Simulated assay, not measured.
Amino acid sequence: MDRKELFEKKPKIKINGKISSCPTSAAMELIGGKWKSVILIHLADDKKRYNELRKEIEGITERTLSLQLKQLEADGLVTRKVFSKKPPLKVVYALTEFGQSLVPILHGIRDWGLYAAETKGEFLLED
């Protein structure tokens, strides 16, 4: 069955044990919330270590970053690779192939955010 047929038949979608009647709701089950898309956009261009992400994502707590990374990993969007041959322990996060499929969408959201700032808000530059 192709996507057009699926859309016309309006099947229920089950992801992570939750049933949605809308594909958008199903997608938001994986990437919704305040931080998931922010983490994903920071991983869109290259893999990052935990501390790099923590420094780049202003306002996120260590606990929240850790929990969100675990959830993104469980959902198959992010991989976590541990290098432990010699101290210090190095952990690197990267998008999976499934996660990479989100990159054009994430870039679109980022671009729309810039448009929204131009249209409805303002840019605040730090000195």
Score class of each variant (00 low, 15 high):
G76C: 01
K12R: 07
K85V: 12
L77Q: 00
V92C: 12
L69F: 00
A74L: 11
I39W: 05
P88C: 11
R80S: 13
D75G: 06
E52Q: 15
D75V: 09
I39Q: 02
A94F: 09
W112E: 13
T61H: 02
E118H: 06
L106T: 02
Y50T: 08
V38R: 11
S21M: 10
I60Q: 05
T79D: 15
L65A: 01
L114V: 05
R63V: 12
K9I: 08
G76K: 02
A117D: 06
K14N: 09
T119E: 15
W35C: 03
E62T: 07
I15R: 00
P88G: 10
F83A: 06
A94D: 15
L102K: 01
K18H: 05
E56F: 08
A26W: 00
E73F: 07
I19M: 00
K36I: 13
L40S: 05
A117Q: 08
T64G: 03
V103C: 05
K70T: 09
H42E: 12
F83V: 07
L106W: 05
V103Y: 07
E118P: 03
K10I: 01
I60K: 02
I31V: 14
G17Q: 00
L40Y: 09
A94C: 12
L53I: 09
A26C: 04
E97S: 09
G33M: 07
I41V: 14
D45Y: 13
K86D: 13
I109S: 03
M28K: 10
R63Y: 09
I39G: 08
Q68I: 08
I15Y: 00
S25F: 04
E62R: 06
L95S: 01
G108T: 09
K18L: 06
W112G: 02
T96W: 05
L67Y: 08
I105A: 13
I31H: 01
L53D: 03
R54T: 04
D45L: 15
K34S: 13
G59R: 03
W35T: 04
I31R: 00
A117C: 06
K48Q: 12
K55Q: 12
R54H: 11
R110E: 15
M28T: 10
R63F: 08
K120N: 09
S25G: 12
T79F: 07
T119F: 13
L40C: 07
E5P: 06
L67H: 05
L89M: 12
L40N: 09
T79E: 14
A117R: 06
S101K: 13
E62W: 03
L43A: 06
E97C: 04
F7G: 08
G59K: 04
L89D: 08
A44K: 08
T96S: 12
A27L: 15
M28S: 11
V91M: 07
L43N: 06
W112S: 06
T64W: 03
D46C: 14
E118G: 03
Q100F: 13
G32E: 01
K47C: 15
T119G: 06
K70A: 13
D45K: 14
K10S: 02
E5G: 10
A44R: 06
L72P: 04
G33F: 01
K85H: 10
S20M: 11
